[in-house]
Each structure stands twice: as structure tokens, then as C-alpha cells.
Amino acid sequence: MERSIEETDVPIIQIRHLRKSYYHGKLVALDDVSLDVPQGQVAVVIGPSGSGKSTMLRCLNYLEIPDSGEVIIDGIALAHASRLNEVRTEIGMVFQQFNLFPHLSVLENIMMAQRIVRKRNRQEAQEVAEELLNKVGIPDKAGAYPIQLSGGQQQRVAIARALAMQPKIMLFDEPTSALDPEMIKEVLDVMLQLAQDGMTMVVVSHEMGFARNAADRVIFMDDGKVIEDTTPEELFRAPKHERTKEFLGKILH
């Protein structure tokens, strides 16, 4: 991307009046969502099931194409981007179900996209991969296959795989909700580290500990709309909306 954000002060993610519906408009998943995320911010998105959190996240890199509205990443409007693949390399995505490539070893999982998208040679790609495996704390699993890893290890590989493209933005869609409790921490630690390093992150997660420690901002969604958008302190102290209160009551017991 040619334009650098520090100079221009424009938010790195801009969402304008996003609408998305399924079944020919019968099911509205996103209803006029607008949102700005400046560089370096960590935004946590919460909300009940079916409220459109995943849909919004997937619209951010156009895995889901919105019906109307605009997504502008680093100054480039995705709807008009003839270079969608190029923009996507700037946006790492981590899925609830990990989605590692089962036919490739851990190292190859991390190297594959570097080699064919970033066109790095084998040695370069391997160096990057090894360094990232170190960073996520499983340098000894380089030769293993995804099926041989625990869920927590798989998710950390998935994070490393996304980071290998050196993205400016990381999207997480419930990265810990398919994990056993004892593995959640190892993944959250990696994400926390990433947040401290200044990565711009949009995280769909109900891990309130993570929201409290790492988030600059918490966004509550319901019914395809953004209901509340505030700081974590504010949210936990005094949620403004009745629905937010109700929801927080459910997840915090």
C-alpha cells in the first residue's frame, strides 16, 4: 500500500453503512453498520449469537461481499479494489475452527502463502516461519502435522500463519471458543503480546479478561446493528443500554 497512515491520520479501517442480508433480504445480518478503527487500536466485538459479528468481520476482507456500503482499508475502497488479493495480504485472519491446511506440516502451513503470494524464496520463508513459531511458543512443532497438535497449538500456528504475511491488521473470529479452558490462556497470551506490539486488531470474543487487559474499545452488536461502542472500563462500570446490560449479565453470570 502506497499510503502510510501516520502521515494522514485517516483510520486504517473505515466501514461505511454496511448492509448484508441473506435469503434475498429475508434475513438481515448487517444493518447499516459504520465503524472506524484507527491504526494500533484493539477493538473487541461482543454480542449474542446471530448478531452479525462474524459477518462484519468477514466483510472487512471481503470474504463476504456486502450488499451495500463501503469498506476502506488503508485508504483503498475494497469495492473498487482491482487488487483485492493484495489488500487481503495486509489483513490477517484467524478463524474459530483454525482452518490449518491438514496436508501440510506446520512449517509448510506458514511458508505456503509467503512463497506463492509474497514470492519469497524457500530460505527466507523458512526463516520467517521459524521466527514466528518461536514467537508463538512452539518452535519444536515445525515438522508436525496439524492433526498432531492440540487445539491451542493449532490456533497459535494459525496466528503465526497470518502474521507471516506481515499484515497491518489482524482479525480474530472467536479464536478461543473451540478450545478447552486450559488452552485458552496460551492463545490469549499470544494475542496480548501482539496487542502490546501495536498491531491493529478487531477481535470477536467473549473473553472479558482479554477485553479488560488489551482492548482500547468494546463494541456491542445485536441484530446486525452496533448498539454500544465504548471503552472496556465504561462498559463494565455502567453499560448504557438495557440490551447490553442483559447480555453482560448473561456472560458474566
Binding site: 476482507n61 487481503r88 495480504t89 490477517g92 485472519m93 503470494v117 504475511m165
Partner: peptide
């Protein structure tokens, strides 16, 4: 699998 690959820019 396809989505993960596309999200990496393939």
C-alpha cells in the same frame, strides 16, 4: 480451507 487461503491473499 478456501477461505483461509483467500484470506492470506491467494
Amino acid at each position: 480451507q478456501m477461505e483461509a487461503a483467500r484470506s492470506l491473499g491467494m
